[in-house]
């Protein structure tokens, strides 16, 4: 089969997708809000599902989070991974329930858990896809997170393109220098084994190359006053001066409260509990 240039499902594509996701280049619903409110919004959706066993409530929350994901323009890679997880999880549940002689009851109990995890996953996609790293780290600083954590978050984002580049280069190195497969084997079993072993062997050089680069970074941080800023509050105040709560932020908080309350009210009116089956 002739090869051609692929713009999706290639290493290059994964790299670009991760960058788009991490740096919120697509814009989206939450990009214009105060990052603290967005983090708060996420916290509510991360906690609420665990307060109930009511499938109706969970389904309503799931729907709200799904709408938020749609409005936040989450990219195909992250969404695809999520959908893949959801579909395989569902298939797995039915298989397990059937294998262990379970009934609808068993399935419903397992579906509850899947829904909870689904809500949290959707909410985190929506929130973090629309926050660029600067805003996220500023929000953490303002909520009195330890400076090392907030810096770690922003530096982690800084490292992402570097790690991706190193990874891409090393995988290309393997593509060029290691021997190609002679036979694919039954059901092409050798292909995934080959890819898997390449990935494992790429890990050590990738981490080492990345780590070597960070030596300069650590020195630069020291000379640029990072340690100093940890001990003095002035820098923190300057950094956060731009964060202001505006009307639309309050509106977002209000809408969130109404939607959560709505979900619980619907659940009260038409409850579906796993244990009722």
């Amino acid at each position: 089969m002739a090869r051609r240039q692929r713009d999706v499902l290639s290493v290059e594509w994964v790299k670009l997708e991760l960058l788009r996701t991490a740096y919120a280049t697509r814009g989206g619903l939450f990009a214009g809000f105060d990052p603290r409110v967005v983090v708060g919004w996420y916290a509510v959706f991360a906690v609420a599902p665990w307060l109930t066993h009511n499938i109706t409530v969970l389904a309503a929350l799931f729907a709200v989070a799904a709408v938020a994901v749609a409005l936040c323009r989450v990219g195909p890679l992250v969404l695809g991974l999520f959908a893949f997880g959801l579909v395989t999880e569902t298939a797995y549940l039915f298989a397990v329930a059937w294998f262990f002689d379970g009934d609808l009851h068993t399935v419903a109990a397992l579906v509850t858990l899947s829904l909870k995890l689904g809500v949290v996953a959707l909410a985190s996609m929506a929130a973090f896809v629309s926050l660029d790293p600067e805003k996220l780290s500023d929000a953490l600083v303002s909520m009195k997170a330890p400076p090392l954590l907030s810096f770690g978050v922003s530096y982690g984002y800084r490292m992402l393109p570097i790690i991706m580049d190193e990874f891409h280069t090393i995988v290309d190195g393997h593509r060029l220098r290691s021997a190609p497969l002679e036979r694919r084997g039954i059901l092409a079993w050798r292909v995934p084994v080959h890819i898997g072993s390449t990935l494992v062997r790429s890990f050590y050089p990738m981490m080492l190359n990345t780590a070597k680069r960070t030596r300069t970074t650590v020195e630069a941080l020291e000379t640029r006053g990072f340690t100093f800023a940890g001990e003095s509050a002035k820098g923190r105040d300057i950094r956060l001066a731009y964060l202001r709560l505006r009307m639309r932020d309050l509106a977002l908080a209000l809408v969130t409260v109404v939607l959560i309350a709505g979900a619980f009210i619907i659940g009260e009116l038409a409850p579906v509990f796993a244990r009722d089956f």
Binding site: E134, S154, T216, A220
Partner: peptide, 14 residues
């Protein structure tokens, strides 16, 4: 002030 030979790693903010 110090500008490193591998200056790319000296940039720490996005």
């Amino acid at each position: 002030g110090y500008v490193y030979q591998d200056f790319g790693n000296q940039l720490v903010r996005p």
